[in-house]
Design a protein around this nucleic acid. Structure first.
Lengths: 155, 155
DNA sequence: AAGTGAGTCCTACTTTAGTACTAAATTCAT
DNA sequence: ATGAATTTAGTACTAAAGTAGGACTCACTT
C-alpha cells in the first residue's frame, strides 16, 4: 500500500472533487434548469486541466536533491593512486620540460632515446639532466628516479 | 482532531474548490445567457484548474528526493602492500645476490657504492649486473629498475 | 668424483652518463 | 619593450656503466 501513502493527497483530492461535483449536480438538478451536458463538460474540463496541471508540475518541477555523502573505502590501484605533488614541483622549480625528461628517464630510456623521442639533441637532454640533478640534489639518474618517485613527482 | 491536522491541506483545498465552483456557478447564472462569454468561461476554468493542479502538485506532493551517493575515496596508505613476486623471481632464475644488487641499484646506488656496501669488487657487481640485465631482458640499469618495480620484484 | 650453479674477480674494451662551462633563441609576464 | 626564465645546443672532458670474454672457489648434487 505504499502507492496509497504516496498519492494519499491526490486520491483525497479526487474523492473530494467527485463528491463536490456530485453535490453540484444535485444543486443543479434542484435549482438550475440548464443544459446538463454543459455541466459535465465544465466538470470534465476542470478535472482534465487539474490533472494536466499536476502532470505539468510533477514533470517539469526540479527534483529536490538530497546529497548523501557515503564514505567508501576504495582500494586504489597502483597506477591510479598517483597524484602529482604539484606544490613540491613548484618548490623545486622543476619545469615542464624537466618533468617530461624525468619521466622518460624513469621509464628506462637512455639520453639518446629521450633526445629522439622529444626531437632535441643529446646535448639538450644532458643539459636538462644537469638541471634536474641539481634541483633534486642528486648525482645520478637512478637517484633522480628514486627520489622523484618517492616524492610523488612522477608515478 | 488529529485527522484534521493530517488532512488539513486536502480539506482546505476541498473547501476552496467548493467556494470557487460556487462562485463560477454564480457567474454562470449571471452571464451564461450571453453566448459569447462561454468560451471565456471554459478558458477560465481550464486555466484556473491547471493552476490549481500545479499548486496541488507542488505544495502537497511529496518532494522528489534524488539521492546522490558520493563515493568519497579514502586514501589507504598501502604501507606494506608489497608482496614480492616470488614465483616470478624463480621463473626468471634471479639469485638472492642478484636481487640484493637489484634493490641497491633501484635505490640509486652506483656500481662502486654497491660494491662497497656488500664488500665485493666493482667487477663482481658488473658481472652480476650483466646477469641481471640478461635475465630481465633489459639493456640498462634504469630499465632493470623500471621492470623490476613493475613486476613487483622489488618494492 | 665429477658436474652444476652461484658467487667472486679480472682485463680490455666500448658506450653511455655526467660535468663544466658557454651561448643563443624563445617564451612570457610586467 | 624589457628582463627573467626556459629551452635549446654546443665543446671538451671525466666518470660511470655496460660488454665480452676467461678464471677461480665453494657448496651442493648426482
Amino acid at each position: 500500500m505504499k502507492w496509497f501513502r504516496n498519492y494519499k493527497t491526490a486520491i483525497l483530492y479526487g474523492i473530494s472533487l467527485f463528491v463536490l461535483l456530485f453535490f453540484l449536480k444535485w444543486l443543479e438538478l434542484r435549482y438550475i434548469l440548464f443544459d446538463h451536458s454543459l455541466e459535465i463538460y465544465i466538470g470534465s474540463i476542470a478535472v482534465l486541466f487539474t490533472a494536466l496541471g499536476i502532470w505539468l508540475a510533477l514533470k517539469l518541477s526540479k527534483p529536490k536533491t538530497k546529497t548523501i555523502i557515503v564514505e567508501k573505502e576504495v582500494f586504489i590501484p597502483k597506477e591510479e593512486d598517483f597524484t602529482m605533488n604539484q606544490a613540491l614541483i613548484e618548490k623545486l622549480e622543476l619545469s615542464a620540460r624537466e618533468l617530461e625528461i624525468l619521466d622518460l628517464m624513469a621509464q628506462g630510456n637512455s639520453n639518446q632515446e629521450i633526445a629522439n623521442s622529444i626531437f632535441v639533441s643529446l646535448s639538450t637532454v644532458k643539459t636538462h639532466n644537469q638541471n634536474i640533478f641539481e634541483k633534486l640534489d642528486v648525482k645520478r639518474r637512478t637517484q633522480a628516479i628514486e627520489k622523484a618517485k618517492r616524492l610523488q613527482i612522477i608515478p
